[in-house]
């Protein structure tokens, strides 16, 4: 039982690390694609767990895309993927939490 718990935890943590790395790279790529300023690339790679895209969303994205109501198909696909990657990070984090918090 204990062995299973640690094996599951190990797998979830590995998955989490993989998703975090992919997510950081992808969001930084999107910042490179849509923004000129280097600061966004720095924020993209350094701020983890969706904090990068969240800051960008508040400062730029929501205003530019009118709260996601006016968005071109290509850009829409990019941001959908980015947000799903961030969501996956949190679901995996919750899974770690869930392994320890089962009633």
């Amino acid at each position: 039982m204990v062995h299973n718990l640690w094996t599951e935890l190990y797998i979830v943590l590995l998955l989490l690390a993989a998703v975090v790395i992919i997510s950081q790279c992808y969001i930084t790529y999107l910042f490179h694609k849509y923004e000129q300023a280097k600061i966004w690339k720095v924020i993209g790679i350094l701020f983890p767990l969706g904090l990068n895209i969240y800051i960008y969303q508040i400062i730029k994205l929501e205003k530019r895309l009118n709260n996601f109501l006016q968005i071109a198909s290509m850009e829409r696909r990019d941001w959908r993927t980015a947000y799903l990657l961030v969501l996956a990070q949190y679901l995996l984090l919750f899974a770690v939490f869930g392994l320890f918090a089962s009633p």
């Binding site: 969240y54 929501e62 709260n67 996601f68 109501l69 968005i71 198909s73 829409r76 941001w79 959908r80 993927t81 947000y83 799903l84 969501l87 949190y90 679901l91």
Partner: peptide
């Protein structure tokens, strides 16, 4: 977190069949 996800709902509105899986995953979450 639930509120922030609700702000993203317009982005996950289904526009074509290819979007169904991703959108459903988001909406269910």
């Amino acid at each position: 977190a639930a509120l922030e996800l609700s702000f993203l709902l317009p982005l996950f509105r289904i526009r074509n069949n290819k979007e169904i899986v991703m959108s459903m995953f988001f909406v269910v979450t």
